[in-house]
Each structure stands twice: as C-alpha cells, then as structure tokens.
Write a protein that binds this DNA or RNA. Sequence first.
DNA 1: CGTGGTTTTGAGCACTCTCAAATCGTGTGG
DNA 2: CCACACGATTTGAGAGTGCTCAAAACCACG
Lengths: 250, 250
Amino acid sequence: MPQVANFNYAEGVTSATFPASAPTGLQALFQKLPVERIAAGQSLFFEGDAAGHLFEVVEGSLRIFKIISDGRRVITGFLHDGDIIGVSLKSHYLYSAEAVTDIKVRRISRRTFETEVDKSPGLRPEVFAHLCDEMAAAQDQMVLLSRKNAEERVCSFLLKELLRDIDRRQSDNIIELPMTRLDIADYLGLTIETVSRTMTKLANKGVVAPAGRHSVRIVKRSALVLLAGNDDEYVDNTVEFASYARRSHH
Amino acid sequence: MPQVANFNYAEGVTSATFPASAPTGLQALFQKLPVERIAAGQSLFFEGDAAGHLFEVVEGSLRIFKIISDGRRVITGFLHDGDIIGVSLKSHYLYSAEAVTDIKVRRISRRTFETEVDKSPGLRPEVFAHLCDEMAAAQDQMVLLSRKNAEERVCSFLLKELLRDIDRRQSDNIIELPMTRLDIADYLGLTIETVSRTMTKLANKGVVAPAGRHSVRIVKRSALVLLAGNDDEYVDNTVEFASYARRSHH
DNA sequence: CGTGGTTTTGAGCACTCTCAAATCGTGTGG
DNA sequence: CCACACGATTTGAGAGTGCTCAAAACCACG
C-alpha cells in the first residue's frame, strides 16, 4: 500500500523535495524579493516567535528543530534549496530554524503571502498540496522514530537524500550530507556514536562507501532500500528498485 | 467498548449531546448528512485507498495507523467525537482508520467538501488552521518518539487525554482510555509490557489511580506535567495548566 | 463457572546509550 | 608549507532502558 502513498513523493512537493527544475507557483512569489545571506550556524527564527515571514531557500541547507527539557534537541527536518519554510504556520513558529551551511534565502511576509494567495486562486491548491506533503513527511518520520532500528533509520535517511538528488537529476550516487553527525543523530532519534557505528557497518557491508566527511557514495541502492524497511510490500530482491523507480518517475 | 454503544441517544438529536467547543464551520458541512454506525474493529478505509471521503466522528473513538514491513504497526493518532478525518489528504489516504469502539460517523465526499469550501471563503482559514494543528500535533509526536523515555511518553499521553477532557468541560480527573494497551503501545512507540509497567509505576507513585480497565484517575496533575517533560520552560507546579492552555491555544 | 482475550508480572537479553579515549580533518598561524 | 590545535568523528568498553519470551492474573462473555 505505501507505494501508492509514495506517489506523493513523486509529485515532488514534499517539504524536503522540490525539484529544482520546475519552480512552483509558490516559489514565484519569492522571485522578485532580495536574496539574504545567512552564515552557517545563524538562526532564521526561534520556536515561539511570532511567525512573521515565510522563507524560500535559494542555496544551502538548514535545520528546523525543537528543544525540550534539559536541552534535548529534536530536528524535525532539513531544508535545501528550493524548499519553502513556514507554510504550515499560523501565529507562531512551531520550531526554530538555523543555517547548517552558509545559505541564501528570500523572505516574504506572512501578510503578503496570504493576500497573494487570495489573489491567485491557482495558488491555493498548491498551498494545500504543500501542507499535505509536509504532513506525509511527518508521518513517515513518526514511523521511523517509532518502530525502526538504527540501521533502518540511517538507511531511510540516506535513501531520502538520494531520492532527492535523483529528483533533481543529480544522481551520481553520491549524496552530500552538509549537516554534522550530531544533526543526523538528532534527526533520527539516535546518538552520534550510533549513527557513526551504523555508517561504518554499512560501509563494511559494501552498501555505501565513504567519500569525504560530508558525502557518501551509495554502492548498493537495492540493499539500502531493503534495509530501510520502508513498507509492507513483499519485495523480491530483484524488484525493489523497480518499486522505487516507479515512485520517482510519476 | 460497549460503554459508548449503550447510551442509546435518539438518532438525529445528537448535536445537543456534544458539548465542548462550538461546532466549527467545518463540522457544519456534515450536519445534514446521515449518521453511519461502524462496529468496533471495523475499518473506515485503508492506507493507499483513493481518498474519496472525509469523516466527522459523531461518537466513539478510532485509530489511524500505518503498517510497515514484518507487520509493525504505528498508530499515528486517535480520533474522538467532534474530530474530522481526512482534511490533510490529497489523492490517497496516508493511513488506515479503524474503529476502536462502536462509532458513529458522518461522511462527505472529497469533491463536495472542496466545492463547499470554495463556495464559502470563510471556511478556508478553518481548513488551513486545521492543517496547521495537525502539523503541530505531528511535531509534538515526533518529539515524543524521538527523545522521550517510557515514563515521559505515558505521562504525555495521559496529559493529552486529560486536557482534551478539560477542553470539553468533562474534567473530573478521570480519563477514559477506550483503546487497548496494544493501541497505546503502538501509539507511543513502546510495547504493551512497558506501557503496563509504566502505568503500575505511576500508580505506585500516587500520580494516577487505576479506575477500571479503560479509565484512569489523575491524582497529581502537576506531577504528570513534570514527568511529561514537555518543554523547556521551568513550569511552576501551580502554573502548569496555564502553560498548557497557552500551548493548545490557536 | 469455564473460556478466550487482555493485562500484569517476571526473568533474561539486546540494542542503543553513556562515558572515555583515540583518530581524523580542517583551519590557523608561524 | 608545515605544524599545531581544536572540533568532529570514530572506536571501545560497559551499563541501562526497554524488548522478548513466558507465565500468571484478571476480566468480560457466554
């Protein structure tokens, strides 16, 4: 069944997955706005702040996260170029946002955004689709956090990044991971040590190959798919790639 | 489960029996539609099905969930009377839905829903707000699953149910938990044994008191709040309710 | 009262975490 | 250009929380 749910991925509007190729109508709203530069480590906004703006990531990556008692951090997502931040907000930001790398963003005020969307009814379905995709991504993440072991989490993560690159037609099987191990750990609900050990294990198995500190080469994509344990389908070893191809082509 | 079925409300007069907050404009869309009864354990729809309908829960509780490989189940939410299912869907259901108790629901077709929303622009902000609230809930759940220990998870869950009752002005400090331990476990990312042990521990601490198999009396709400470890703020024991009111506030 | 399902309790184990140290990389200054 | 220094990552050893497997207790139902 999830193969159907995953058509959403294919449609490419997951918060984490905007095809760079086809800017959406939403992105057009930002087109004329000035680009701002923000240095790695700097914050765009904090959880609980009045949600004044939406942002479009023009270049670079950033993380969105929440902090709970005694400083535990939960990264609820990474955003990359082409992504839009802040659609699913009402009055206040639900999370903080920080630049992972030096980034460039454009910002639009919430008010402007709303009036623009009201003006062009064609945008409304797009806003709606965006919200649904965010929701689908959140649900997938809940599944990951709730029931997957360390290996499945890491594989799911790598696979997600890989598919993102494929959507953007940059699939040389090398994925860039600009974030630190700590970021990945806080995203996957693990510790840095466990992430590290799991990566090592995957490398030993020949599933991936180290390619510098911030990138990884995917050697056996099919193994990655299996290990990600994504869904229910009885996946014959020889077919699971087809299953993924189907997703990303639709 | 029969505690709900036994109430025997006259058909069609139901709206009077559901207090709580004023019915939203969204709920008004369902007002004239017939009530359907569904027995405990029956499915409303399955993950991956074409998303033909939205549902309003008139009475009873249900669970929404996803299944992954080797049968692991993740319950992503419980829904109770007054709740609406299916707003955040595009073409296909993201999850399956099953009745926990005997339930009554009303259904509206996706198409009708969309045209109605288009007709009454006043509804649009409501749909948007609904989506944002769903998103906020999903994020909270990610935090729970990612970084909370068993005790914090169970306390968070109890607290959530309690606050729901308070919102509906039924706060006698006894919360109904119509779902099974297995449901709770699959919602909290734990096993039934761990849920059970944690409940026992909370009872031993005097935080809660057993009150039949499907309900619990909250004895020390303030302790529950502390143990839920929800956020960063240092919450004074006397203020925690205010803190929660603020948070669930739209 | 039995019967079947659910929940609780118990004992042992495994996966991941914690704490600690070694190694690697990257940027800096001499 | 090299050496150094600091942070990030990896590796190691041991501990702990929650899981698994098993059995007892509980409860609703006939």
